[in-house]
């Protein structure tokens, strides 16, 4: 039982990180039908920003909790600026071009950012300090660490906050309207450029939160972490139904649990096998993903 719970919480932690990244994929796809391949790199840049901020503030003698919060805030700001800029440079000029063009641009952006960070920083793994405050978790302390608990709690809060934002704020409503019918959104007076920029900013911010949390949990980063995490999170988004925000949350949860149980009860060698087998199965039986809409046949 205890072993089962341990795996369950491990899966929840994994799923949380996937969710924080998958939300950016799915939101951008929902608005402009683009798979933003550079999104994993935004997550990686968030982690590097967190590392740099933690280093500076640590040397300056800031208390641990302050470093944790400021590292996340700084990473959010920096990654958001990157997300905003990438859209302006790499995607906006290609709006209205053939579908493949922005996709290729996204892959190019991803490779560029990886290499840029590798050259500017290092190609080696860098140790990442444990920023998440450590304490003994009451009652379930023997099965879940404080950092796992905080990752899960932060992710739940972020998901609730995002859902409320999309449902009730003016900008959130504009995002939904733009995702459902861009032409009509323009006709009611929504500035679609602003909505697209905001979508990149929000998605990048969430990825940055994930970047700092997971780097702190695992304890090391390099320029390549965005690629792996990005593919997994993208899988989660497709699993849940790309374009659907609750779908990305659910897809991430399922993927995290699948991997955790495959690792825990079979072998960690099979983690990816199970993850992608699950994806293939879902795509065979529900091509649009769990919560995705079947594409409407337009006459």
């Amino acid at each position: 039982m205890e072993y089962f719970l341990e795996i369950l919480f491990g899966g929840l932690t994994r799923g949380s990180i996937y969710a924080l990244i998958a939300l950016g994929y799915t939101m951008v796809y929902g608005i402009i039908e683009l798979i933003n391949f550079a999104h994993g790199e935004i997550y990686m840049i968030g982690a590097f920003t967190g590392l740099i901020i933690a280093g500076v503030l640590g040397a300056a003698g800031f208390p641990a909790a302050a470093i944790f919060v400021l590292a996340i805030l700084g990473a959010v700001l920096y990654s958001a600026a990157y997300g905003y800029t990438i859209e302006k440079i790499a995607y906006k000029p290609l709006r209205g071009a053939q579908r493949l063009s922005p996709l290729i641009s996204a892959i190019g952006m991803s490779i560029f950012l990886q290499n840029y960070v590798m050259l500017a920083q290092t190609s080696d793994f860098l140790p990442f300090p444990s920023l998440i405050p450590e304490f003994k978790v009451p009652w379930i302390g023997h099965i879940i660490s404080s950092s796992e608990l905080i990752i899960v709690v932060v992710t739940i809060l972020v998901c609730i906050g995002l859902t409320l934002f999309i449902k009730f704020t003016r900008l959130g409503k504009a995002m939904r309207a733009t995702a459902q019918n861009r032409k009509m959104a323009m006709l009611v007076g929504i500035n679609v450029n602003t909505v697209i920029s905001a979508t990149f900013v929000v998605g990048s911010s969430l990825a940055a939160v994930g970047g700092v949390l997971i780097a702190s949990h695992i304890g090391q980063i390099n320029y390549y972490i965005g690629f792996i995490a990005g593919i997994k999170a993208f899988t989660a988004a497709v699993l849940g139904g790309i374009g659907s925000v609750p779908g990305a949350m659910l897809g991430a949860l399922i993927l995290g649990q699948t991997e955790a149980f495959a690792t825990g009860y079979v072998s960690s060698d099979y983690e990816d096998v199970f993850a992608f087998a699950l994806l293939v199965l879902i795509l065979i039986f529900r091509p649009a993903g769990i919560m995705g809409k079947e594409p409407v046949q337009k006459v």
């Binding site: 504009a174 939904r176 009509m184 959104a185 006709l187």
Partner: peptide, 26 residues
């Protein structure tokens, strides 16, 4: 100037009330 476009272009997953709210977006 407002337009009722060809094919109506209702926001399908917004409620009727939310569709009307979008009309008053500005």
């Amino acid at each position: 100037i407002s337009q009722v476009p060809e094919g109506r272009l209702i926001f399908p997953e917004l409620t009727i009330k939310e569709n009307l709210d979008m009309g008053a977006f500005l």
